[in-house]
Design a binder for these strands. Structure first.
Length: 254
DNA sequence: ATGGTTGACGATCAA
């Protein structure tokens, strides 16, 4: 079973890349973030024709998430239950007995911005939600764009990023609190070479210099992690013409 | 050098 997360930065601009990914990699499940479109503008027919069920939580212009699956998606839940938030950032469903939560965590803009505190509050509510999910399901995976580089090993130039958004102590503490619920960082289950990133700035030739950071994650419950086989960052989808600024990231399970 | 690139019901905002 292959599970993938991908911030596509506009589903309609990236549809041809997604179609190629689905045909080439054939993930069992893929969580998409930053659809940047309302539900009625989501290319549902095109994706269904590729053999995928779709559950969509769209929003015009900003945010928007979706779950795509080869098999039926059951017990779909939108957003963070009980948390007042107009933005469409979360969608969850059960596929082949695995509870998949797909999230697009707020960016936060800068530590001085009001959006920074909003991000920290959002993460606190999200962590409470995941704590509840873990009480009800044993096979759980929490995937998405976390907008947090967990450690300096996840940053190409730690000294440049020191104290900057995506790398502040409070964001990293919030990430550790999620892990403390009993989740394992899917790309850190096995040792990896240095310089393993998932996002590169469009500006200044960021990808060509591998001037990236690792902010897209797949977190596995302990029970699910017993099925872990391997993980991968699909760098070839960041090289294509007009790519997303994020690469797809996958874990493969037994 | 306070730049630079991309996307959206754009005339700026968010990333």
């Amino acid at each position: 079973m292959k599970i993938t997360t991908w911030n596509v930065n506009s589903i309609n601009v990236r549809l041809s890349h997604l179609a190629e990914f689905l045909k080439e990699e054939v993930p069992s499940v893929i969580g998409l973030q930053e659809l940047k479109c309302s539900n009625d503008k989501f290319p549902l027919k095109e994706i269904e024709e590729l053999g995928y069920h779709c559950e969509i939580n769209g929003q015009p212009t900003y945010n928007g998430v979706a779950l795509l699956s080869k098999t039926e998606i059951e017990d779909v839940v939108f957003d963070i239950p009980g948390y007042k938030c107009e933005e469409k950032r979360v969608i969850a469903g059960t596929i082949e007995g695995v509870r998949v939560i797909n999230a697009y965590v707020p960016n936060g803009q800068s530590p001085e911005s009001d959006k920074y505190q909003y991000k920290l509050n959002w993460l606190a509510a999200f962590t409470k939600y995941i704590e509840e999910v873990l009480k009800n399901y044993s096979q759980v995976i929490v995937i998405g764009d976390y907008n947090i580089a967990p450690t300096d090993d996840d940053v190409h130039h730690p000294e440049t990023w020191q104290g900057k958004i995506l790398c502040t102590d409070k964001e990293r503490e919030a990430f550790l609190e999620l892990l403390a619920l009993g989740l394992l960082d899917g790309l850190r289950i096995e040792a990896q070479p240095k310089g393993l990133f998932t996002w590169w700035d469009y500006r200044q030739g960021g990808f060509e210099k591998n001037s990236g950071i690792r902010i897209d994650h797949l977190l596995l419950s302990r029970v699910l992690s017993r099925r872990f086989l391997s993980s991968a960052v699909h760098l070839n989808y960041r090289v294509m013409e007009r790519p997303s600024d994020h690469a797809p990231v996958s874990v493969i399970l037994k």
